[in-house]
Design a protein around this nucleic acid. Structure first.
Lengths: 210, 210
DNA sequence: ACGTCGGTGTTTACGCTGCCCACGTCGGTC
DNA sequence: GACCGACGTGGGCAGCGTAAACACCGACGT
C-alpha cells in the first residue's frame, strides 16, 4: 500500500539476482550459482531469471563482473594505502607490491569471489572480430599497468624492461593466488602464507630490474 | 574362444574408463567427463562405474592422475632435451627453463589435460591429518625441485636464494599457463605466445639471482 | 559334481538441474 | 475502458549423478 513494490512485480529482479549471486558465491564459488537455488533465494520462480539473462551462463557472468569489481576495489584500497611521504621511487615500488599483494590477499580471503572474478567474460567463438587482448582485459589489469608505469616514471624501471612486464607480474601473482586457493598451498598458516606471498612478489619485481 | 574376455565381464573396466576419460577430456576438459557419457563411450551401463569408483569425483581424479603423468613426461622430455656438452652452469639454467617452458607448452597444446592435471588430488576435509604441502604435491613438482637444486650445484644460485624459489617459479609458470589457457592470453599467435612465455620465464629466473 | 559366494554389470527409480513453451498478470498509454 | 508490452508463473522435457535390488559369471570348498 505505501510505496512497497512487493506483490507481483519485483522491484529490480536483475540487481537482486546479482546481489544474491554474490552472497551465494562467497561460500561455494561459481558452483553455488544454480539457477534454481539462486531464484529460490530471491523468492521467485526459476524461469523469471530468463527475462533478464539469456541463460545461466549469462547470469554467472553478471555476478562475475560484480566480483571482479570487488577485486579491483580491494586492490585499489591497498594501493592507496601506501604513504606518500616516502621518496617517489620507494612509493612506486610499494604501490606495485600493493597491487600484487592486494590481488593475492583478495583471492585468499574471498576465494569464492575470486573464482568468479577471473572468469573470462566473453565466450570463445561468438563474434567474428578477434578480441584484442586489451579489449577483454579487466579493471584490475589497469591498476597493474598504472603501477608499472609509475615505476618507469620514478626511474626504477627502464622503458625496455617495462615491455611485457605486466604479463610477468600478472602471471606470478595470479599463479600464486591459484596455488593458494585451489592448489597445494591451500590452507597454509596465514602468517606463513603472507610471508611467502611477499617473497614471491618481491622475486618477480626484482626480476624486472636486473 | 581363445583368450577373448569380451562377453559379460569387461576385461579391465577401470582402466578402460580412465583411458576413455583421457580421450574425452582432451577436448572438453573436466566438464566432458560426465559419468553417463563416459560409461556410454565404453559401451557399459552408467552404474557399472560404481564398482570401480566411489563417485564421479573419484573417477575424474583417476583421469586427472593420468593427465598429470602425461604432464610430467612432457616436462621430463623437455628437460632431457638440453644438450650436455655445454658448461654445467648453462646446462643447469637451460634445464630450469625447460621445466617451466615444458609446463607452459603442455598447458597450451593440451588444455583439456592440463585442466585435469592441476586438480588437487585430495578433497579438503577428509582425513584429519593436515596433509603436508610436500605430501599432496605432484611429480611435476619434483622436476622443478631437481632443476633448482641443479642450479645450486652449478653455483649459479646461492642456497639462501634457493629457499622457497620453487614457489616463485611455480607461481609464475603456472600463472602464465592459466592466463594462456583460461585467461586473456587465450588464442594468442603461437609465435608471440612462445616469445612471451620465454620472456616471462626468464624474468622470474633472473629474479632468483640478485 | 555340486553348492556357495564374491566380484561385476544391469535394471529401475529418485531427485535434481537448465531450459522451452504457453499462460496469467501487472503498469502505462491511446 | 480496451489494448499492449514487460514481467513473472506453471507445467513439462531431457539429462544428470546416484542408490537399491537384481542377474550373471568364475572360482573355490566339500
Amino acid at each position: 500500500m505505501g510505496g512497497e513494490t512487493r506483490a507481483y512485480h519485483h522491484g529490480d529482479l536483475r540487481a537482486a539476482l546479482v546481489e544474491a549471486g554474490l552472497r551465494l558465491a562467497r561460500e561455494g564459488g561459481a558452483a553455488a550459482l544454480g539457477l534454481r537455488e539462486l531464484t529460490r533465494s530471491v523468492g521467485v520462480t526459476p524461469n523469471a531469471a530468463y527475462r533478464h539473462f539469456a541463460d545461466r551462463r549469462a547470469l554467472v557472468l553478471a555476478v562475475a563482473a560484480a566480483a571482479q569489481d570487488r577485486l579491483a576495489h580491494a586492490m585499489l584500497d591497498r594501493m592507496n594505502a601506501v604513504p606518500d611521504d616516502a621518496n617517489p621511487a620507494e612509493r612506486a615500488l610499494q604501490r606495485l607490491r600493493g597491487v600484487g599483494l592486494g590481488y593475492i590477499h583478495f583471492a585468499i580471503s574471498e576465494p569464492g569471489w575470486f573464482e568468479l572474478a577471473i572468469l573470462t567474460q566473453d565466450e570463445p567463438g561468438d563474434g567474428e572480430p578477434p578480441p584484442t587482448v586489451e579489449d577483454r582485459v579487466a579493471p584490475p589489469y589497469q591498476l597493474l599497468l598504472d603501477a608499472l608505469d609509475g615505476m618507469v616514471d620514478a626511474g626504477i624501471l627502464t622503458p625496455a624492461r617495462r615491455t611485457d612486464a605486466e604479463w610477468a607480474c600478472w602471471s606470478t601473482v595470479h599463479g600464486f593466488a591459484d596455488l593458494a586457493t585451489r592448489g597445494p598451498l591451500q590452507g597454509l598458516e596465514p602468517a606463513v602464507m603472507d610471508r611467502l606471498a611477499a617473497h614471491v612478489v618481491d622475486t618477480i619485481i626484482s626480476g624486472l630490474q636486473p
